[in-house]
Design a binder for these strands. Sequence first.
RNA 1: GCGGCUGUGGCGGAACUGGUAGACGCGCAGGCUUCAGGUGCCUGUGUCCGCAAGGACGUGGAGGUUCGACUCCUCUCAGCCGCACCA
Length: 832
Amino acid sequence: MSQYEPREIEGRWQRVWADEGTWEVPNPGTGEDRAERPKAYVLEMLPYPSGEPHVGHLKCYAVGDAIAHFRRRNGFEVIHPMGYDSFGLPAENNAIKTGEPPLDATRKSIESFRRQFTDWGISIDWSRELATHEPDYYRWTQWIFLRLFEAGLAYRDRAPVQWCPEDATVLANEQVIDGRCERCGTEVETRNLDQWFFRTTAYAEQLLEDFERLDSWPEHVITMQRNWIGRSEGAEVTFRCEEAGIDFPVFTTRPDTLFGATFFVLAPEHPALEELVEGTPAEEPVREYVNASARASVEERGDEDRPKTGVPLGRSVINPVNEEEIPMFVADYVLMDYGTGAIMAVPAHDERDFAFATEFDLPVRQVIEPDRDSSPEEGELPYTGDGPMINSGRFDGQFNRDAYREIIDWLTEEGRGEAAVNYRLRDWLVSRQRYWGAPIPMVHCESCGIVPVPEADLPVLLPEIEDYAPRGKSPLEAATDWVAVDCPACGGPARRETDTMDTFVDSSWYFLRYLDPGNVEEAFSREIVDHWMPVDQYIGGVEHAILHLLYARFFVKALADDGRLTVREPFANLFTQGMITRDGAKMSKSRGNTVSPAEYVARYGADAARTYVCFMGPPERGGDWTDEGVEGVHRFLARLWRLADDLEVEPAPLGEGLPAQPDGPAREILSKANWAIDKATRDFERDFQFNTVVAAVMELVNECYRLRDELSGDPEGLACLRFATATAASLIQPFAPHLAAEVYEKLAGERVWEQPWPEPDPELLKSDTVTLVVQVNGKVRGRIEVDEAVAEEELLQLARAEENVARHLEGTETVKEVVVPGRLVNLVVRPA
RNA sequence: GCGGCUGUGGCGGAACUGGUAGACGCGCAGGCUUCAGGUGCCUGUGUCCGCAAGGACGUGGAGGUUCGACUCCUCUCAGCCGCACCA
């Protein structure tokens, strides 16, 4: 007896797909008119090639491939490309440790990823493959940098930045988690350095508004981005320091509490500090305080529970609403990063200001009375709720929310403030003092300043060097021949920019390059990109909910404004897959609980591994990997294979030989097959319920086994069995494409991936009789099998006649009869 | 603290717009096949009482709406994730 040999089957079909270039799709205008069909851009986040793929990759690409197959068979022209996010720190850190050049390690890893993706049988259009470290690619990353520079969206600035002492590089705000470096966990320091930024803040408003343009994104991802952008409405109000002659604008969300401001605080990094205290008795203590807070780690400073610290400046500002003089302080609870780096402090109505006032024994003036309805404990400060205003001049007695607008209007009239919107979002710091990244295409000239490299001179090639170790400046500084360059503007001696770009830059536009990967004239043709974009379905991990997805959205908006493409949002639908754990814990090498997909693919086949990750549970949720689980799925696939293998039939089109009026087991199996088609289709379309799609096919296979002996007797029965088995193969194809191809070919003589997705036959979907549940007072007391067309009157009679039901009706009178067609009968009774 | 998500058998999870709770898989038990193990095929499997028929209980907890609630409402508990001195 023969046996299911997945590796043999899989290898054979993979060869067919490779030889025929089955998954390659042409661009519009290339002569082939397949593009008549509606397009679907199915995209999984491109992998960072480091070592070998892990189960997370398997899940991501298995899910994406299932979607791609499903869309293809529903008549879409599916573009499904693959590439590698191949610049980045791990390759470089490996180089520092082992001396192996990042390029070599990266190539090896890409090789391994490519081989496994092929082994898994993912339906990739390999003609579009790209890697972001290749000059053909990063040439255009550099080109986009130049476009952003020209548009004023890329700029260089000295700024306090997050510095990781371990990796010896600057980090983006987004890469600092709890005051620690996202990569190595080292506490981050603050340094003042010249850095390159992208002006993401210019799009803050659009990045928020355009959530409207998205079809379907997980709500929590939108929420996370919304919080990250952190839009607050309020007012900017100017406080003037007469002695120093400086105006200090502050941002406040509570202009209604202006009358309660009793002091004023600057952040330690505030640029006006020095001027304010120079030559005064406060100079020394302030300097000490500023230095101390500069030394303090971000984490220390961020601790909310730490007592408030600060130093008086010996200066004061005038409160514009009441001309009152209030004292100035420097304190590190005020952040230079947010708002204007200066605040008006209203201790009566702000917890932080209250804590500071308590610490420094400053006056607290209440200007809003607690609303008696909402807050029973009156008079307790700080009070952050709403209520009528007091101690607020002509606004006294007004409800604070009503006065809000009036105060802003009044400030505007007086020229002392205006309505303002503030964002938490910062500009994106993109320069890195590291080697393995795309060089920033800029030149520093002594006489011309910063000069962009002319487009014609791109790419600025990453030079080969010996020593990759960072020394607080880019390792590229050592490539002296490369650094020395003639100024593109004046021809004089100049130096190249030695910083490289954050790898998130590379991955912010790769989905555009896939569409036109061979273009040597431009990054991509607008026509082609407009044809394919947006990505119809994007798939990846939630860990990119903020960074990557926000940056890619920013890029598309900036490129659209530059006239390079039409869409304003790159990803119409987003699906975030949950993480697979092992023994309930996140997989990690140090814990020793990693799962090597290659091992399971070798043992059970790619089809089993892929189907398993889709069957574990809803793919957006995580799941715990168990060997028994994979085995179970393997067993199911083997059952399906054996079912087909044992069937002694000649291949023929599916509908052939079926009985015209099926009854008995023929009817049963055909009904089940059509039920499975219907169920699988609906669950596919509804939120990627892949686990229940697989379960439906399992049920169909189980039914085939159950009815197999009865059906094997005559040709019509065999045809039914053949239909049901081939249908099971057809439905499992998005998950187990090799096995499906094998079985379908044997039974139908056709290529399953070329078949349209099956449609259920409505006639076979419904059965003549239905089983109704009969309840008495809401409790199930019996079941009756009835003709579907039976009248309600007769139905109730049948229900009452059911033995067990009748017993429960004894000695009662009926209060109410509920009939739900096709479902149940509920008799509501009470003792007679 | 703010925002979001999740609580269902021994385990992963089903249950579409309120209508048979536990599909499907794992695990476990039994039978057949087999010299035996494994594989394969079949049956059973929420808990408790009962030989059975049947009954009681049951979706984190407490209330409520309803003929009927895993599903809707109110309160509450637990766990996970994100953000967090954001003015």
